[in-house]
Amino acid sequence: MSAAEPVDTAVPAAAPRPPSGPRMTEQVLRVIVPIAMLVALVALWHWYVVAYNVPHYILPAPERVAQAMIEDWPTLSGALFVTLKITFAALAIALVGGVLIAVLLAQSKWIEIALYPYMVILQVTPIVAIAPLILIYAPTTQSALLICAWIVAFFPVLSNTTQGLKSTDHNLLNLFELYGASRWQTLFLLKLPAALPYFLVGLRIAGGLALIAAVVAEFAAGSAGAGSGLAFRILESQYRLNIPRLFAALILLCATGVAIFFATSLVSHLLLRKWHESAIRREN
């Protein structure tokens, strides 16, 4: 159960829809069907645990997990907050840094030729492998986790934005040249808006990856104590065979991943709905 996969088909496919009557029903069903599915799965889980008398240290029943969630909420919420803080800080720095470096790379092909290989090296090296090194260099564990999450989230933003900046319509570039546009005018009025859909794909991927990296890095760091995130609580629960709490922590992670996924999809939809093909409902 990975928290969020780097999927880039977030906005519900703009399928042709029948007119309003059936459309209402469809919209209601779109909400009801997933909820019914969830209820059914939980019921199945409950039935399985009861019917086969599964011990709670192997698979706790749903209500035990719920109980753990409530009773351990002070610990869990603290851990959730730490994980969220690392994830969003890493994502924010990745967004700013990714866009800035993409703009820099787009300025000259020589800058790109010089820098791009290192960007790729950063991306392809498994984060778990360099985490120990980062832990040694970074002043605190928190900052080490932040760096790890940032490295992973940064690349999708960079590569997508770079691609977007390069994909500007040549005729529009000609038009800007024709009217004597300055470099900055071309960047702000043409290249950046044209790159926006690409950037948003990068954002959706980076959002999911930032969370994954924050968790993976914490596993690698093996940090402990009051300032730890959800990953540490999961390990800790495992050592203590407190499986209900482990499940509760896992559910929090999933929920966070799903929330990030929907939030980034929503941002993307809001920014593109007026003009980009991916966000427009086809009406013919």
């Binding site: 529009l172 043409l190 808006p193 926006l196």
Partner: peptide
């Protein structure tokens, strides 16, 4: 200059 395609900025 008028190009063969309208060459409009779709976001504007």
């Amino acid at each position: 200059f008028v190009f063969q395609e309208p060459t409009l900025m779709p976001w504007a």
